[in-house]
Measured scan of single mutants.
Amino acid sequence: MDPFVVLVLCLSCLLLLSIWRQSSGRGKLPPGPTPLPVIGNILQIDIKDVSKSLTNLSKIYGPVFTLYFGLERMVVLHGYEVVKEALIDLGEEFSGRGHFPLAERANRGFGIVFSNGKRWKEIRRFSLMTLRNFGMGKRSIEDRVQEEARCLVEELRKTKASPCDPTFILGCAPCNVICSIIFQKRFDYKDQQFLNLMEKLNENIRIVSTPWIQICNNFPTIIDYFPGTHNKLLKNLAFMESDILEKVKEHQESMDINNPRDFIDCFLIKMEKEKQNQQSEFTIENLVITAADLLGAGTETTSTTLRYALLLLLKHPEVTAKVQEEIERVIGRNRSPCMQDRGHMPYTDAVVHEVQRYIDLIPTSLPHAVTCDVKFRNYLIPKGTTILTSLTSVLHDNKEFPNPEMFDPRHFLDEGGNFKKSNYFMPFSAGKRICVGEGLARMELFLFLTFILQNFNLKSLIDPKDLDTTPVVNGFASVPPFYQLCFIPV
């Protein structure tokens, strides 16, 4: 058959498939802009700032609406009420993970971030239990974070109060905490193996944040037939998995079943207990991918939040002064901060919360999916439909947070200066898919920041009023603009 005829037939089939998918069930789905064949609503979305586009569309179609990214149908949730109703009140029905062709290629359905069903539930339950087990290797997770915080302070001392970009050092600290939990080992910041790991993690975040990856996920045929950065992403992930597998083999040879040292040991012990169960989800494949998931999810998000926190503290020296006064009063100079201190430091706690609220790190979270046909607000959402959640619409709700575009710790303080919780605080998402490392991340943010401010004054290279804190939105995360500062020993 003539190649031209084959091409026309293929394009015609794709067009018909697109029209059929977009028209099927439209009477039951939430409203939304009319999609174009094949490309859907992509032309109506700013790929570099999806969150802003969703906010604009919500003003037209309401808090629940339908979009098509290519052939992929998505239902968008915008605003606290619908997000709570879906992710919390109907948590089980909305607990699936959205379709990610690239991740599915890399992870093969294993791990904790992109798995679904029984596998996801069992691996998540085990990971939560293990991360909360403060007795691994007779050292609590808090001990590990405190140790890394001391190392971080010593690295900052080496800058000798000269101007520096904190990106690298602030990236090393949370990565080392995860390494300590998974591998029972922290690395020197100049260790070549550690630097290679950091390089792969950072490069992957840069790649994932590009519009090209959005295109690959919406048109998965590209993955096999086109060159691009997605190939580098898959190569980096394969490198990390190979490295983790080597460490798993080392653990198998040296493990003491009665004295687990780290996450890998705990997983291997669980595998041993379930070795007679042919349906067990505790396999080497799941261990390797879960460890890679924890490394990827637990490094860049925390380091970016820390980097943004220091920029905001530079911009608002009056806030920094209040935090340091609270540190001096509650902790002093002669001991290290600990998590028990947080309950006695409402202002510092409010500042950490406000940093996370203000920066809105992951504006749309990772997409969910419905696990069955769901009736939601008089609409029928078919099983498997991807759910896109606007966390921006919750964290920047102007009824809950007056002047949401302003950095103001009073958003989390009552009139008496006591810490005030808010149900709208969802930087880790909400419901059954809430970030498994939430507790660890909150511990790291509090301890790293208090250790830094206990030991250093922060000095800006320019007038604080002239510092730009506008986030650089890159399609996946909101990151701070480049800046330098000086760490002046107190």
Rank of each mutant, 00 (worst) to 15 (best):
P33H: 01
E405P: 03
F446I: 01
Q356F: 13
L67I: 12
L57F: 15
R139N: 14
L395C: 04
K52V: 06
A309F: 04
H230P: 06
V64H: 02
I331W: 05
E85M: 07
P337M: 02
K200G: 07
L67N: 00
M345A: 00
I123S: 06
P174I: 08
F110I: 06
N56P: 06
K275L: 08
L195S: 13
R73T: 07
A441V: 08
K232V: 13
K270W: 08
V82E: 07
S422I: 03
R333V: 10
V113P: 03
V374H: 01
I88C: 14
L131Y: 04
L67T: 06
P101V: 09
R333W: 13
K322C: 08
G228I: 04
Q356I: 10
C151A: 14
N277E: 11
G79I: 00
T450A: 11
D373L: 02
T348N: 01
D188F: 06
D373Y: 01
L380V: 12
W20G: 08
S162Q: 14
S51G: 14
V352F: 06
G79A: 00
R377L: 06
S336K: 12
I215K: 05
R206V: 08
K375D: 07
R357V: 00
E241A: 08
L313S: 03
V490F: 14
L90K: 13
A149M: 08
R73M: 06
I488P: 05
E246D: 10
N107I: 07
V370H: 00
M443V: 09
F134V: 12
V330R: 08
L7F: 12
P402N: 14
S180R: 06
L311V: 09
V75N: 00
I39L: 11
L14W: 15
F69V: 13
V177A: 06
L312W: 02
Q184Y: 13
T302M: 15
H316Q: 08
T66R: 04
L306T: 03
L77F: 11
D360K: 05
S242H: 14
I45F: 15
L201F: 08
Q214S: 15
D408H: 05
L9I: 15
Q484T: 12
S58A: 13
V82G: 05
S254N: 11
T34P: 14
